[in-house]
């Protein structure tokens, strides 16, 4: 016998493991090992593919497998989906070999979103490291489109070297056109690099943030996020105003496979975007 609550519950719920088909429109190489797939999103029952900034898809390459990839395009343009992908393994390599007109499978969008509405009326500080800029790009598009609703927009971005910077043209545009403060730093400079050299945490001293009026969104490698959050708190930003996007191994994307657990949290459904107080106690622990 089965609990009747469960028996009748959501018999129409989505079959969460079934991918929808989408068509690759273009592959743009951002760096030597990172590329952006521009995709014609799947249409379900004539509806367009709506997503929120911060969410991710499970992207499937035929026969090779799936990878959890954040959406890096503009949520207000749901007809053109972008995924910026670091080529590191078999799935991300298979996806990198796709050409215009090829088909991929998509499941999603999954996960929590960046708190854009909460940021209305506030200064927004975006701190990204490496590929961590990709899940924040939808936020930047949104903030700039609704520019007058926000105070200062500060974008701090750290990468390994000048050649590893993503979205170089856009970074230039954002800093020039839209009344945003963009500060870029790299771990290793070269003689042609005129920007900052050093870690992202070192950039806050140039900002003179009005911390009570600021909300921060942070995404990057876990070490970078940990130190960035510490620095933000040290500068007086309340933990409740700091958000970060976490990464873990994901197989299902919907909280059923158990892989992405971070303490009691499932990164795929309770995250990936968390406020700092939700997970602060876990960030300091080893191998959680």
């Amino acid at each position: 016998m089965i609990d009747t609550n469960i028996a009748v519950k959501r018999t129409e719920a989505p079959i969460s493991m079934l991918p929808a088909l989408a068509t690759v429109r273009r592959v743009i190489w951002e760096t030597d090992d990172t590329y952006t797939l521009l995709i014609d999103p799947p249409r379900a029952n004539g509806r367009s593919f709506a997503f929120s900034a911060g969410q991710f898809n499970m992207v499937y390459a035929f026969g090779t497998g799936e990878s959890a990839i954040s959406i890096s395009s503009d949520p207000s343009r749901p007809n053109m989906l972008a995924h910026t992908i670091h080529r590191v393994g078999t799935v991300t390599s298979a996806l990198s070999r796709l050409r215009r007109g090829d088909t991929i499978g998509l499941r999603g969008p999954f996960g929590t979103a960046w708190p854009i509405e909460e940021a209305v009326g506030k200064d927004v500080c975006i701190a990204a490291g490496g590929i961590g800029l990709a899940p924040l790009r939808p936020v930047i598009y949104t903030l700039l489109r609704r520019r007058e609703e926000f105070g200062r927009i500060m974008i701090l971005y750290g990468a390994r070297s000048p050649l590893d910077l993503l979205y170089r043209v856009e970074l230039e545009e954002w800093s020039k056109a839209a009344n945003a403060e963009v500060i870029i730093t790299v771990d290793r400079g070269d003689s042609s690099w005129k920007g900052h050299i050093g870690v992202v945490t070192g950039l806050f001293s140039y900002l003179k943030m009005d911390t009570p009026a600021t909300l921060a969104m942070v995404c990057g490698p876990e070490v970078m996020m940990k130190y960035t959050c510490e620095e933000l708190e040290r500068r007086g930003l309340a933990a409740e105003r700091i958000y970060l996007s976490m990464e873990r191994n994901m197989k299902c994307g919907v909280g059923l496979c158990g892989h992405c657990q971070f303490g009691p949290k499932f990164i795929c459904k309770d995250g990936p975007v968390f406020s700092l107080p939700q997970i602060k106690h876990l960030l300091d622990r080893k191998e959680i």
Binding site: G129, G158, R160, D187, G198, T201, G220, M224
Partner: peptide
């Protein structure tokens, strides 16, 4: 932190 080469 810079030595950690966190983006690699």
């Amino acid at each position: 932190l810079q030595l950690l080469d966190v983006y690699g």
